[in-house]
Design a protein around this nucleic acid. Structure first.
Lengths: 339, 339
DNA sequence: TTGTAGGCGTTATCAT
DNA sequence: ATGATAACGCCTACAA
């Protein structure tokens, strides 16, 4: 392995001068810099991060800790956002997942300490409440896509399910829908509750009578092994002679089943029923015909901005914990029509 | 930060004795070990990996390099498999993605060298041919979910699309289907071609006349911005009075569109048409009603076994490059019926 | 079985 | 503006 000393020797300067060049420090004459840079190229030198870390005790490394409960459908985009910020800012990312096992989670925090990690991104695949086992380790931490439980007080960055659902509901209302079905997400998901509440809020605000809101629970049970009633709930709602003109779904996955139920009953989308999803999981929302009108979860931004936020936290430790919320964009496609 | 010396002092032993205990080396009396272990617990000592690396020049770190072309729907499971093997075997994973940019790819290899990485996992999100820019750096490398192009000769681990498609086709054949539609995946995807070839092979072998095989191209164009003909192709095939009794799809995503087209035409699944997918992307395959019969891509295994293989390569460098193939399991659900 | 000395590649400190 | 030297935390080699 070629070291800083080899470079120094080749360039005929001291190791410290090489160090200065490598780290872009001032007080190096252009001529020196030139010489050193050539030696670096000639020898193919790359700095040894491990040694740098030992000496400076700055690792420039962040850890991601995820839950990965159930197969993880969407949120690879969160990790992509994290990656992109990290790469652009010279940080390294260490990835670990708990598989939902608290004991494993503890051992991960130790691994992180072992690697001198400067901060932790605690990422969940569904928007929900968590209690990280951070324990006694107090590394700067940002929660991404989840909300701190009572035991802890940590900064978080979360999608604004409320605003997204409000926008979507008002969009339906604006297009004349006055009798609307709603299929609810699993109640243990924070996002699901927020979406439903927002839906209720918007319809009440618009003066829609209670009777014209048809609500069904689409799924329940532990994440990853929930029982799913969506298809039959949709058939049920749509079979009624006084059926709603539109159905909103807890997420896009549910929307598929509503499509299938509607078509099965000979209903056309959107002429006979309008359908709206949530998430904009494009593998679904673009595969549906007509393509799905939905609200996009800002996963990439969550990752990107969350990492930025973690970095702030590290550089300005005084920064107070707080909750940041990222809007969900309304994606207008073909599955909702005017009445 | 608490170091090995602090522990040694607290336990009243030398630093080397602590080192021995930490690394589980022999020749330590139980009594000593006990004393050291208590000191470790009391002080909350964790070894400093960076220092360990500097001295021993073994990083126990693998790098993952991914392409992430287009939004990545499925293959988070590959990374999960890698993670699990790594965690179980005390390895650390560094994640980097090229975003398809060769220049960035080069800088990633440098980052990897900087971190003294012992091996590289080159992962793609779609099964395809690649030419890694490994350049002069010759780290042990395993290709996961992709196949080396002409320029390089690297070991790879790939899904057995051929076997999966063969199994699926024969399954349909065994259930009496004699006139079958096939909607092809983008021709630039290796897996798509293998699936299609295998389908042709199996039907020919079964003596199905050319006339009874109805093939359509479902999509084409660059990955991530392909044009999609699936829905209209499916309508087309199914509108024919002499329509096939079953349709096989390049993947599950296409299957959705075939479902929609069939239902739109008033056809029942599977009574009137059987439908088979490929991938077992469960967010889709389980959301469809009836649930989709398909072949499961072994993503998790690809990651897990690929990492194991990389480790072998590192420990026994003599090991020759080779191609390993992992079977796709046939997942029998409700979308295919007997004729 | 245990301890001592030295060195890995880097940055920090303090001279010059 | 540049350099000499120490120190980071650990492991290797060797000695006791």
């Amino acid at each position: 392995m070629v070291s800083i000393i080899d470079v120094a020797r080749a360039a005929g300067v001291s190791n410290k001068t090489v160090s200065r060049v490598v780290n872009g420090e001032p007080y190096v004459t252009p001529e020196m810099r030139e010489r050193v840079e050539r030696a670096i190229r000639d020898l193919g030198y790359v700095p040894n991060m491990a040694a740098r870390m030992v000496r400076s005790s700055r690792s420039r490394t962040f850890g991601i800790i995820t839950d990965y409960v159930s197969t993880t459908p969407y949120s690879g985009d969160i990790v992509r956002g994290i990656q992109d910020w990290a790469t652009a800012n010279g940080k390294i990312i260490l990835l670990a997942n708990t598989g939902g096992d608290p004991e494993r989670e503890l051992s991960i925090w130790n691994t992180f300490r072992s690697h001198q990690i400067e901060g932790v991104l605690y990422v969940t695949m569904y928007h929900r409440v968590v209690d990280p086992e951070a324990g006694d380790v107090d590394l700067p931490t940002v929660l991404i896509n989840c909300h701190p439980g009572s035991r802890v007080d940590l900064p978080s960055i979360e999608p604004d399910d409320t605003q997204g659902s409000l926008d979507l509901t008002r969009y339906l209302l604006a297009r004349g829908h006055r009798r609307i079905g709603y299929i609810r997400l699993n109640p243990i998901l924070l996002g699901g509750e927020q979406r439903y509440e927002a839906f209720r809020h918007a319809t009440t605000e618009a003066g829609i009578p209670e009777n014209d809101i048809i609500v069904r629970l689409g799924m329940e049970g532990p994440v990853g092994k929930e029982t799913n009633y969506v298809y039959s709930a949709a058939r049920d709602i749509l079979s009624d002679e006084n059926r709603p003109t539109a159905i909103m779904c807890g997420n896009d996955e549910m929307a598929i089943q509503v499509y299938l139920a509607a078509l099965h009953l000979g209903l056309r989308i959107p002429e006979d029923v309008s359908i709206a999803g949530f998430d904009d999981f494009q593998t679904l929302s673009l595969a549906l015909k007509p393509e799905l009108t939905t609200a996009a979860l800002p996963y990439y931004d969550l990752g990107f901005k969350g990492t930025e936020r973690l970095n702030q936290l590290i550089e300005i430790p005084a920064d107070r914990p707080s909750r940041v919320v990222v809007p969900c964009e309304l994606i207008e496609r073909g599955s909702v029509s005017s009445k």
